[in-house]
């Protein structure tokens, strides 16, 4: 069992909701990322999703776009991101780290090169926003051969048949996109999320489902998490990275994550 799958199975066994937190690597500068990752864990994050910046983040809202632009402005590359995760791993061997980005950056490094380097750096899996399972064959094979998970996304528009197909192709967890839209929007409808996930749950086996997009605080996290194995929080944390002075970032992130953790732990 991979570190990611093991972590989620352990949480489920203890009846604890998973909290996955997203920040963009290299945002606002290269030195911010590793302390920020530790700060997320200190606040109660179970999984870290680390955004790989891309020039054309077509599924992201203004917050994550801005984070990506800040990271690219200081020259962050995928090699740099791997180095940041390796540095994080030196002090944290347990928290799963999943890279999230767009395909071209991984393609450019080469799937086999990337997977080898990712395994060495202590990365546990990837989420590729613009890679539906039909197109994922080569990348998935390379990921599998290095015991890395391929987390796939499902959306409200995904048909039931396709939902089951994607669940069969995914590993680690299934990422349910809570609404039709881009990251960080205000369209979250916890009831609709709940109805859909309840309808789909029987076909999913043991695969955990985490819900992301539009979850910004304890209340929205708790409202959604009661229907899922956990939640993903991103844009509000990226805003903190961009708006707060460098030295204050870790304390602010920890406080922000702790609020959400506290709300989840009431479930």
């Amino acid at each position: 069992m991979t570190r990611l799958a093991g972590r989620l199975a352990g949480l489920r066994g203890r009846g604890r909701k998973a909290l996955s937190t997203f920040i963009t690597a290299g945002d606002p500068d290269a030195t911010a990322t590793v302390p920020a990752m530790h700060a997320l864990v200190a606040g109660g994050a179970d999984i870290i999703e680390l955004g790989v910046p891309f020039s054309d983040p077509e599924a992201d809202g203004p917050a994550v776009q801005a984070g990506s632009e800040r990271a690219l402005a200081n020259g962050t590359t995928l090699h740099d991101v791997l180095g940041m995760v390796a540095a994080f791993r030196a002090a944290d061997a347990d928290t799963p780290v999943v890279l999230m980005g767009y395909l071209n950056v991984f393609l450019k490094m080469g799937y086999e090169n990337f997977c080898g380097a990712a395994g060495e750096a202590g990365i546990d899996g990837v989420i590729v926003v613009n890679l539906p399972p039909e197109e994922a064959g080569d990348f998935k094979a390379a990921l599998c051969s290095h015991d890395l998970d391929l987390v796939l996304l499902v959306a409200p528009t995904t048909t039931s048949e396709r939902f089951r197909y994607i669940a069969g192709e995914a590993s680690g967890f299934l990422y349910y996109v809570s609404y039709k839209g881009i990251t960080g929007a205000e369209h979250l409808d916890a009831r609709a999320v709940g109805e859909r996930l309840q309808a789909m749950r029987p076909g999913l086996g043991d695969l955990p489902v985490l819900v992301g997009f539009g979850i910004k605080d304890g209340a929205s996290a708790a409202a959604v998490a009661r229907h899922a194995d956990g939640v993903v929080v991103g844009s509000v944390l990226v805003n903190t990275m961009g708006n707060v002075g460098g030295s204050e970032i870790p304390a602010r992130l920890t406080a922000q994550v702790r609020d959400i953790r506290t709300a989840l732990d009431t479930l």
Binding site: E58, P132, E134, L152, L153, A155, T157, T158, R162, V177
Partner: peptide, 20 residues
Amino acid sequence: ERGRFGDFGGRFVAETLMHA
């Protein structure tokens, strides 16, 4: 039928758009 022109083309989009 997958929208491939040899090695090119295909459908590399966010899942939300696949149905459309």
